[in-house]
Design a protein around this nucleic acid. Structure first.
Length: 469
RNA sequence: GGCGCCGUACCCAAGUGGUAAGGGAGAGGUCUGCAAAACCUUGAUGCAGCGGUUCGAAUCCGCUCGGCGCCUCCA
């Protein structure tokens, strides 16, 4: 299975050729842990999870690194900005460390519920200050930095290919269009590598450095940590599409200026989730969290399924009508898989019939073609509806597909949910009443069960039930 | 103003020049004491509009209309 991905660097589909055969170094920009993630954020992590699973499915060994930003990510450009962690700490009266610990846990709780695999390593910025200082020293030695107003800046004019990823040379940017530019900069595109306390005397998190006590800029953490865990040149760097013009552009500049080598071979970016035709954002107040969905009675996997329905490089419009469609589709899917499980045992993947294997081949092809998850999902439905395929082959192939889709089909149990003694007795009473054609009594039992959260369905094999969520 | 995109059925959505995947909703039917479930059948001669290239266009080109993102922290 040869995977092709759309590389933002170059803007074209490219075959993935790992630096080291059979292995892939994957770096994904992680959360800034100052608040809960919203479902738009989570869409990106779902896409990255599909990518990782697809790589592993294709037989590659993936070293998946994700950072946790717990310092240095400002709310604005340089001087007028505020550290997001400290802002949250100040507003809640807690320490930045407490804030970070709390939202880191909340984040992993969300990803776990979405069946997103944990990174091989997730690393906190504050645990890698030394690596960042080391990298800034290399940049300084190579002549890419200057100190102004007490901060260490990266001098973008010294890096000729600056902005290649975002095609910045083709743009006529409006500097300071909506926010004042830091006057310490030689060039508006320059960015801070290290802040000293000259500007932020009260900053709670400070570390010693050759340039004075202070804290790192946001961008430097990704360069320092990715290099530590993946080496100075690695395969894939992911993130949201919004990171292309600034964050990822700056990461490339500082990384390659330090090492003199090509840093990342493939840049893969996820598009936005739209809410009411606009991007979901905390600032516009139109964001919802995973917990909001759970509180409304949805399973987190309903949202995962929803995301699978759109291509990662297309904007996806969120609304409850289509989330309902995803929920219904998933419940239908689960029912089918449960029925298959009660009828057959999964077999070895390479033992299934040719016609069943064809579905898997097509499925693989869709994944390999720039992660076309919607098409892959479609393939699964076509397989399920193909009456010429045996139940065992269907089950085997579907479970194989779910290794990438991650809908927890393997965990579904064929057995009916357990009933309490009272509930079981009511089911029996209803059956007895039905046999004697006492429909009124039978319906009373059904209503009572319904009020207890048990939904009865009559099948040719007798009554079946599900518990209402 | 520049840059990057998008506009496909009631909703979401795939579609990489060769004759419109899939899901949901809806409709009809089988079954059923009823209900639910299940199963079967069913949907765009059409892809914002208008031109053009082509044997052939949702796919390529141009224009028009409408929408989104970025240029500011942002997934």
């Amino acid at each position: 299975m040869q995977i092709r991905l759309y590389n933002t660097l170059g803007r074209e589909l490219q075959e993935l050729k790992p630096v080291k055969e059979g292995k892939v170094g994957l770096y994904c920009c992680g959360p800034t842990v100052y608040n809960f993630a919203h479902i738009g954020n989570l869409r990106t992590y779902i896409f990255e999870d599909i990518l990782r699973r697809a790589l592993e499915y294709a037989g590659l060994k993936v070293n998946h690194i994700m950072n946790i930003t717990d310092v240095g990510h400002l709310t604005g450009d340089a001087d007028d900005g505020e550290d997001k962690m400290e802002k949250s700490a100040r507003e809640t009266g807690k320490t930045p460390e407490d804030i970070a610990a709390f939202y880191t846990e909340a984040f992993f709780n969300d990803t776990q519920r979405l069946n997103i695999l944990k990174p091989s390593t997730s690393c906190a910025a504050t645990d890698h200050i030394g690596n960042m200082i080391g990298l800034i020293k290399r940049l300084e030695k190579n002549g890419f930095t200057y100190v102004s107003g007490g901060n260490v800046y990266f001098d973008t004019s010294k890096f000729p290919s600056y902005g290649e990823l975002a095609l910045l040379d083709r743009q006529q940017l409006r500097d300071g269009a909506r926010i004042e530019v830091d006057t310490n900069k030689k060039n508006p595109r320059d960015f801070v590598l290290w802040f000293t306390n000259s500007k932020f005397e009260n900053h709670l998190m400070q570390w010693d450095s050759p340039w004075g006590s202070g804290y790192p800029g946001w961008h430097i953490e990704c360069s320092a940590m990715s290099m530590k865990y993946l080496g100075e040149t690695f395969d894939i760097h992911c993130g949201g599409i919004d990171h292309i013009p600034v964050h990822h552009t700056n990461e490339i500049a500082q990384s390659e200026a330090a090492t003199g080598k090509k840093w990342v071979n493939y840049w893969v970016h996820g598009e936005f989730l739209l809410m009411d035709k606009q991007k979901m954002a905390k600032s516009s107040g139109n964001f919802i969290t995973l917990q909001t969905l759970v509180d409304s009675g949805y399973d987190p996997l309903d949202y995962r399924y929803f995301c699978l329905g759109g291509h990662y490089r297309s904007q996806l419009v969120f609304n409850y009508e289509s989330l309902d469609a995803s929920r219904n589709a998933r419940l239908n899917l689960n029912d089918r898989v449960i029925a298959l499980k009660s009828a057959a045992e999964p077999a070895e993947v390479n033992s299934i019939s040719e016609s069943a294997a064809k579905y898997l081949t097509d499925f693989d092809g869709h994944l390999a073609n720039d992660l076309n998850a919607p098409r892959a999902l479609s393939e699964m439905w076509q397989l399920l509806k193909d009456s010429s395929i045996s139940e065992q082959d269907k089950l085997t192939a579907v479970l194989q597909m779910d290794r990438v889709l991650g809908l927890r089909l393997d965990e579904l149990e064929a057995a009916l949910p357990e009933l309490t003694e009272e509930e079981a007795s009511l089911v029996q009473q209803r059956e007895d009443a039905r046999k004697s054609k006492d429909w009124q009594k039978a319906d009373e039992a059904r209503d009572k069960l319904l009020s207890m959260g048990i939904i009865i369905k009559d099948t040719p094999q007798g009554p079946r039930w599900t518990k209402r969520v």
